[in-house]
Amino acid sequence: MFTGTVIQKLCLLLLAGILLVRANAQEHKGNWDAYVVHIDHKPVSVVVDLDFGTSPEAKEKRNVIIVRLNINDVQTDGMPVRSEIRTLDSIENGLANHLKTVLNAVYTGRYTQNGKRDFYFYSNDTSHYKQHIKTVLQNFSSYTWTVSASRDAELGNYLNVLYPTQKEMEHMQNRRVVDDLRQRGDALTAPRKVEHYVFFKTESGRKKFARVVQDSGFVVENAGKEMGVKDRPYSLHISRTDKVDYNSIDKVSIYLWETAMRYFGKYDGWETFVVK
């Protein structure tokens, strides 16, 4: 069985071309993922280290360095053309490695929109940061760029620009579970029983939710009161037969997530079995 709550805790690097800073066993390694949102009908691509905000280093490195790179060749939606991606990856890796070496900076993510790509680093030391950026980017003279450094003790850039919303996080977690099923040999074509778990603040909220989703074909497997769960002690275990390709299960999951919020509940993921 594979649960959303278990899979989403795994530290996976899901994007090829992202180079994590090489560190010793005591240093923050990162939990990288990516997502896409749309602003003014155009895509925004975000790659982020989901664990940085809760890491010990986040408490120490309170200056943000933002490098903005103007992408040379973009599609009509503002995203880089495929032929430019390898060069952009080289720039990204070069910045991450060099700033780690000279400023002990942690690379926390990137933000791509409208032909621009912003790289975010956090560090205690910002001395000569412009020269350090120039050292890397002088090898890529066809690109124009700007850089800024400022105090960010509250991690505002990381939390408000890079870090996903709860809904975006749900999309990402669904993709992780589906990818894991695929890697284990599941063709993702056969419908099968999928079980879901939701927790509520009140028993009445749980009952109202259960009545609503039963109209959509969900079956209540179990309802109980979880010991040790303070804010949402009323649990609900439901199931339905569904497809588990990403588009199908993502619609189901988001429906349950949004419906649970209406009744002060928290959707806690789904599980199923591999069908080969």
Rank of each mutant, 00 (worst) to 15 (best):
P233R: 02
K230C: 03
F199P: 03
Q214E: 15
V220M: 10
D231F: 07
G224A: 12
V213I: 15
K201P: 05
E221I: 13
A223M: 10
V229M: 13
G228M: 05
G217R: 11
G228I: 03
H196R: 07
E221V: 15
E195F: 08
A210D: 00
E226G: 05
V198F: 05
V219L: 07
K193G: 08
A210H: 08
A223C: 04
V229G: 04
K201S: 12
S216N: 14
G217M: 10
S204E: 14
F209A: 00
G224F: 12
V194W: 10
K201W: 04
F209H: 00
R232N: 04
K208Q: 13
K225P: 01
R206D: 00
R192T: 13
V213D: 01
D215T: 14
E203Q: 13
F209I: 06
T202G: 09
G228C: 05
F209C: 05
V229A: 14
Y197A: 11
V213W: 00
G228Y: 04
K230D: 02
Y197V: 03
V213P: 07
S204I: 05
G224E: 07
S216W: 13
E226T: 08
H196A: 07
R206A: 00
G224H: 10
N222T: 10
T202P: 05
E221C: 11
G217Q: 10
E226S: 12
F200V: 05
G205V: 01
F199K: 08
F218H: 10
S204W: 04
R206W: 04
K207I: 00
V219P: 03
V213H: 00
F199R: 02
A223Q: 14
V194P: 15
K230L: 06
V229Q: 11
R211M: 08
V213E: 04
V219G: 02
D231R: 11
F218A: 09
V212C: 03
H196M: 09
F200I: 05
V198A: 02
V219R: 13
V219H: 09
V198G: 13
T202K: 06
P233G: 09
V229P: 02
E195W: 06
Q214M: 14
Y197D: 14
R206V: 00
P233T: 03
R206C: 00
K208M: 01
V220K: 14
S204K: 12
N222V: 04
M227K: 12
H196V: 01
E203T: 09
K208W: 00
F218K: 06
E226V: 08
Q214V: 03
K193A: 14
T202H: 08
D215N: 12
K207N: 09
G224Y: 12
H196Y: 09
E203R: 10
F199M: 06
E226W: 06
S204D: 13
N222S: 14
S216C: 08
V213K: 04
K207Y: 05
N222H: 14
R206L: 00
S216E: 14
V229H: 12
V220R: 12
R192Y: 09
R192N: 11
V220G: 08
K225W: 03
